[in-house]
Deep mutational scan, measured.
Amino acid sequence: MSIQHFRVALIPFFAAFCLPVFAHPETLVKVKDAEDQLGARVGYIELDLNSGKILESFRPEERFPMMSTFKVLLCGAVLSRVDAGQEQLGRRIHYSQNDLVEYSPVTEKHLTDGMTVRELCSAAITMSDNTAANLLLTTIGGPKELTAFLHNMGDHVTRLDRWEPELNEAIPNDERDTTMPAAMATTLRKLLTGELLTLASRQQLIDWMEADKVAGPLLRSALPAGWFIADKSGAGERGSRGIIAALGPDGKPSRIVVIYTTGSQATMDERNRQIAEIGASLIKHW
């Protein structure tokens, strides 16, 4: 067993022997301040990774656009098919120029040779490549099948209805392509620590998230040296922004954090800054 596999296998073990965790309302004060600064709703939840206990939450059962955070769930569904012998990570998928959609920095470079399922998941999570996500959605049967996968996990809230990039439209009061912070946090925890996926697939999923290259201005910008984070960000229309993450000190994750916002007129930089400040408060009061 590799060191990384050992780390993920012992996530519940280490967490069980940690000192009790206590909620700190100071972080919620910052979440509410972010709402004021952005002029928009902000949803927040913080779960203990081992027990699933909610440590703090704000608007945990209000719907927010998922945006690209759905790509972690998508690759979880792909990995479940791999575990069941219905898919192979090494299978190569070929596609054409007509398949390319807006923001496809990886797939646009491989029109000639195609990409493997493993490479597509890596591109979808680490670079948020939209064509990679659409190609992977095709392998599982489309958005409705991802929703069905989530329902089978016990998540009857999260739903995907459309493809990239239309799913980022974020129309107010439109339930399409949305989740709730509580539902997303619980589902992410199941994917990373539950028995739904094999140990190898859980490790692969967290490795992809740990290698995320496009979430630097968010929670990662607030992390002290030595902290662990595996995350996936999302951005959408109407001032929408979000991030889902597993993080913790001492090089291992111990909490799940989900943050979503929508309806702001603020710039992307300002949305990023507010999420980073929430992260800084979380870490300060850990």
Rank of each mutant, 00 (worst) to 15 (best):
residue 24 H to S: 09
residue 26 E to H: 15
residue 28 L to H: 15
residue 30 K to E: 05
residue 30 K to Q: 07
residue 31 V to E: 00
residue 35 E to T: 04
residue 36 D to Y: 12
residue 37 Q to S: 09
residue 38 L to H: 06
residue 41 R to T: 09
residue 42 V to S: 03
residue 43 G to V: 01
residue 44 Y to G: 01
residue 45 I to M: 15
residue 48 D to C: 06
residue 50 N to I: 09
residue 52 G to D: 10
residue 52 G to N: 08
residue 52 G to H: 10
residue 53 K to E: 07
residue 55 L to C: 14
residue 57 S to R: 12
residue 61 E to Y: 13
residue 62 E to A: 05
residue 63 R to F: 13
residue 64 F to K: 00
residue 66 M to I: 08
residue 70 F to R: 02
residue 71 K to Q: 00
residue 75 C to I: 14
residue 75 C to K: 03
residue 76 G to H: 02
residue 77 A to D: 07
residue 78 V to K: 02
residue 78 V to Q: 03
residue 80 S to Y: 07
residue 80 S to L: 13
residue 86 Q to P: 14
residue 87 E to G: 05
residue 88 Q to Y: 13
residue 89 L to M: 14
residue 89 L to C: 05
residue 91 R to M: 14
residue 92 R to T: 09
residue 92 R to W: 11
residue 93 I to D: 00
residue 95 Y to L: 08
residue 97 Q to R: 12
residue 97 Q to W: 09
residue 97 Q to M: 10
residue 98 N to I: 06
residue 103 Y to C: 05
residue 103 Y to V: 09
residue 109 K to G: 08
residue 112 T to I: 14
residue 115 M to S: 05
residue 115 M to A: 13
residue 117 V to L: 14
residue 119 E to G: 13
residue 121 C to P: 02
residue 123 A to P: 02
residue 126 T to L: 09
residue 127 M to Q: 12
residue 128 S to T: 01
residue 131 T to W: 04
residue 134 N to Y: 02
residue 135 L to Q: 14
residue 135 L to V: 10
residue 137 L to N: 05
residue 137 L to H: 04
residue 140 I to T: 13
residue 142 G to M: 03
residue 143 P to R: 04
residue 146 L to Y: 08
residue 147 T to F: 03
residue 150 L to V: 14
residue 154 G to S: 08
residue 158 T to R: 01
residue 158 T to I: 03
residue 158 T to V: 04
residue 159 R to P: 03
residue 160 L to C: 06
residue 163 W to C: 07
residue 166 E to S: 13
residue 168 N to S: 12
residue 169 E to I: 09
residue 172 P to V: 12
residue 174 D to L: 03
residue 176 R to Y: 10
residue 177 D to L: 01
residue 177 D to T: 02
residue 179 T to G: 01
residue 181 P to D: 00
residue 184 M to T: 02
residue 184 M to P: 00
residue 187 T to Y: 04
residue 188 L to N: 02
residue 189 R to N: 07
residue 191 L to P: 00
residue 192 L to I: 07
residue 194 G to V: 06
residue 194 G to M: 07
residue 196 L to K: 10
residue 198 T to S: 08
residue 199 L to H: 13
residue 199 L to S: 10
residue 200 A to S: 09
residue 200 A to E: 11
residue 200 A to L: 13
residue 201 S to G: 09
residue 204 Q to H: 14
residue 204 Q to L: 11
residue 205 L to P: 00
residue 213 K to G: 05
residue 217 P to M: 09
residue 221 S to C: 12
residue 221 S to Y: 08
residue 222 A to F: 10
residue 223 L to R: 06
residue 224 P to L: 05
residue 225 A to K: 14
residue 225 A to H: 08
residue 226 G to D: 11
residue 226 G to F: 14
residue 227 W to H: 01
residue 228 F to I: 09
residue 228 F to R: 07
residue 229 I to D: 00
residue 230 A to G: 10
residue 237 E to Q: 14
residue 238 R to E: 11
residue 240 S to W: 02
residue 241 R to Q: 05
residue 242 G to Y: 00
residue 243 I to V: 08
residue 244 I to D: 01
residue 245 A to W: 02
residue 250 D to A: 07
residue 250 D to W: 06
residue 253 P to K: 05
residue 253 P to R: 09
residue 254 S to N: 13
residue 255 R to P: 01
residue 257 V to L: 09
residue 257 V to I: 13
residue 259 I to P: 00
residue 260 Y to Q: 03
residue 260 Y to T: 05
residue 260 Y to E: 00
residue 266 A to W: 11
residue 266 A to N: 11
residue 267 T to F: 10
residue 268 M to I: 15
residue 268 M to K: 14
residue 268 M to Q: 13
residue 268 M to R: 08
residue 269 D to T: 14
residue 270 E to Y: 14
residue 273 R to Q: 14
residue 274 Q to C: 10
residue 278 I to E: 02
residue 281 S to E: 08
residue 281 S to V: 09
residue 281 S to N: 15
residue 283 I to A: 13
residue 284 K to Q: 07
